[in-house]
Each structure stands twice: as structure tokens, then as C-alpha cells.
Write a protein that binds this DNA or RNA. Structure first.
Lengths: 200, 200
DNA sequence: ATTAGACTACCTACTAGTAGGAAGATAACA
DNA sequence: TGTTATCTTCCTACTAGTAGGTAGTCTAAT
């Protein structure tokens, strides 16, 4: 149940963990070569250039994310809990260093020097995520669970930026609880609390 | 008033702008050489190794920051305005791309792969900043301007992580106003508003 | 006379990327 | 059935260029 991964998938897996650790300029074909035990040239066979390798990687990451978010909306009915579950996912990833860190959060901080083909895919990932968040917020408003100060698209953008910023900070400062400390109050401020509901 | 900068200072200046743009692995001695018109070997004369160059740079950055924060506290009496002024500084830097971006925010996202001597200085910078924020928050509490949910040190840590995360996000998403949108509500939630004061 | 700061010239290690070939699997066909 | 052709995957061996860093020299100011 482990060796079923194809070589190209293994290459992508390793590349992902290397980028998450050290960014786009922080890894080389030689690193991947050493990690999975095939020659550099063989990696070039699967991914002719580095920019292409990372482009494919970001596309895969985006697909996985979209799938995850979709199933999240299908399996959890309450928008509030969908959002909470999304945060919990990242919280657990940050707490347990063996779990993945957000690929695009890392690449985002290098946006300025990424090859354009990579940068545009990173932007696409965030665009998709923002759409998801927007629709969750919108659903929450309709179900009288959330009250927003701004338009849903704006609130989604803020939330997304905040989550990714918090993620980077929590890791940099080596304190996973920072993530929750930053994100939780923002989540709470969206929610129409039970007491507020009862009163209003 | 421009050519008064020594060569080593010029080297540090260029290195800073290069790191801010592309991170630790995103620049080379050759880049600096090309930018200020001296040979690579001459840069090695001033800074034998890259790790040392960046270490000195971070130290300089820390000193500049401490000086700036100190004068901020001297020139502005109200803790609330000190904090506001600190945020405004970064907001204007993000809005105007020609102004500097936070060196340590950038390096923080690469923390895992920085040479230890660099990483420890980055941590030192953040430690100093956290102390400043803590004392401002504390002063604010004593003057009945702020009400904190947690201990001042914790609130300072959260605020610091949040500011730097927001900074990275705002730049990555190319939307300077994201910075304010994330940070302002947090600042507001610390403040005891006039209305609250009148009531309480 | 010493020294700081620049230089030329070089080194080794590593970077992404290429050329060309060997081994095995698959499919086509006589 | 055996044979041939094709495709995939990996390999060895290589390239040009860049990385950080070193050795030794020239020059001008202290």
C-alpha cells in the first residue's frame, strides 16, 4: 500500500516536502535524486525543467485542495463547522511537524521571484480557496449563523490571508498555538453567538 | 548626501533589498557585485562568508528597529498611538513598494533552512520586538486604554505574529489594504473605546 | 611601513539541463 | 509461435554556467 506510488508521484512528494522546508530556491534536482534514489537525469525525464516540475506540483496541490474542500462541504452541513474544520486541519498540521505544511503559503512568500508559470498557478490556488471561503461565508449569512462587516468576497480574502500569515508565523516562532490564537478570535467575530441570537 | 555610505554599508543595503525580494537563497555575491560595481572577491573582503554577511545585516536591522521603536515611545505619549504609529509605518511600506519590506518577516519564513547564526539573530530581533510590544500593551493597560484577554506577553506575541503574517499576505496577494483589514480589527479589540469607557 | 580596500585569477562544488544508450514492457504482425 | 517495432523508464556521461570562497597583487592613505 506504499509502493503503489509512481515515480513521478514520488518526485512530486519529495519536491513538496523540500519546498515546504526551504522554498523554491531551497532545493535541487540533486536533493530529489538523493531522496528517492534515482539519477538526476531520470527526474528530468519526468519533468524537463524545474519550473515545470513545480508547476505540476502546484496544480496537483490545488486539485487535492479542491477535492478536500468539496468533501468538507459535503460531509459537514453547518458552514460554521465547515470553517472550523478547515482551521482544525491546519492547526493539526502545524502541531504535528510530520504532517504537511501549506505548499502555497511557502511559495507565496517568494512570489516575487517565482517563474511566472509557477506564480500564476499559486495565484490560481488562492483564487479557488477564496471562492470556497466566500461561498461558505455566504451560506453562513443565509442561515443566520454569520454576520459580516464587509462583502463576503472581502471577508474571505481577509480570512485567507490571515490563516496563511498565521500559519507562517506559528511555524517561524515554533509555537503552534499562535495559529489558533490569531485565527480563533476572527472566526468568533464572524459567528452570531447563541446569546446574541437569543437577545436579537 | 548619498555617497557618504561606506562600501560595507552599500553591500548590506543591496543584500537587504535582495533578501527582501527573494530570500536567503535568492541572492548571490555575484548579484551584489553587479549591483554596486565591485568584484565578488572584494565583497568577501568585507564579509568572508554569506552567513556572516546576513548575520551582520540582521544585527544592523535589529539595531535600527530598536532605535526606531525607542524614539517612537519617546515622541508619542499614548500607548494606543504608539501602536497605531507602528502599524502605520508598515502599512505605508507595503503600500509604497519603493519603501523597505520587513527583512525578518522574509527570513522568518525560511527559518528552517537558515544557518544557525542567522536564525538565532532573527529570533533575537523578534524577541526584542515582542518586548517592546509587551511594554506598550502593559502601559496601555495601566492607563486604562487597553483591555487584554490574555497576559501582555501573549498578546504581544499574537500581535507580532499577526502583523508579520499580514505583511507577507498583503504583499503576496498584491493588496496593501489586506494588511490593515487584518490588523486593524485586532488593534480595535484591544482598545477600550470611548463609549465603553463612558458606560463602564 | 603598514594597512585597508580593491583587484585579477583562480578553485571546487554544485546548478539546471542535454545527449545518447540499455533494459524491459507492450503491441503488431508474419 | 517468434520477430520486429515502439514506448517508457532509467542510466552514464557530459555541458555551460553559477555558487561560495581563496590566493596573491596592486595602490593609496595613514
Amino acid at each position: 500500500m506504499k509502493s503503489t506510488a509512481s515515480t513521478s508521484e514520488k518526485i512530486l512528494d519529495i519536491a513538496q516536502s523540500l519546498i515546504v522546508a526551504g522554498g523554491y530556491n531551497g532545493f535541487s534536482y540533486a536533493d530529489i535524486s538523493a531522496a528517492i534514489g534515482i539519477r538526476k537525469a531520470s527526474i528530468h525525464h519526468h519533468f524537463p525543467t524545474k519550473a515545470e516540475l513545480v508547476s505540476v506540483l502546484v496544480s496537483r496541490y490545488r486539485q487535492q485542495t479542491e477535492a478536500g474542500l468539496k468533501s468538507l462541504r459535503e460531509e459537514i452541513s453547518s458552514p460554521a463547522e465547515q470553517l472550523q474544520s478547515y482551521m482544525n486541519y491546519w492547526h493539526s498540521c502545524i502541531r504535528d511537524a510530520s504532517l504537511p505544511f501549506c505548499l502555497c503559503a511557502m511559495l507565496a512568500s517568494e512570489m516575487q521571484m517565482l517563474p511566472e508559470e509557477v506564480a500564476s498557478r499559486v495565484r490560481a490556488h488562492f483564487h479557488g480557496l477564496a471562492e470556497w471561503l466566500t461561498s461558505v461565508l455566504q451560506a453562513g449569512v443565509e442561515q443566520d449563523l454569520f454576520r459580516l462587516d464587509k462583502r463576503p468576497e472581502e471577508e474571505a480574502q481577509i480570512l485567507m490571508a490571515s490563516v496563511h500569515g498565521a500559519m507562517l508565523s506559528a511555524r517561524a516562532f515554533g509555537d503552534p498555538e499562535l495559529f489558533i490564537a490569531i485565527v480563533a478570535p476572527q472566526l468568533a467575530s464572524l459567528r452570531i453567538s447563541d446569546s446574541r441570537k437569543l437577545r436579537g
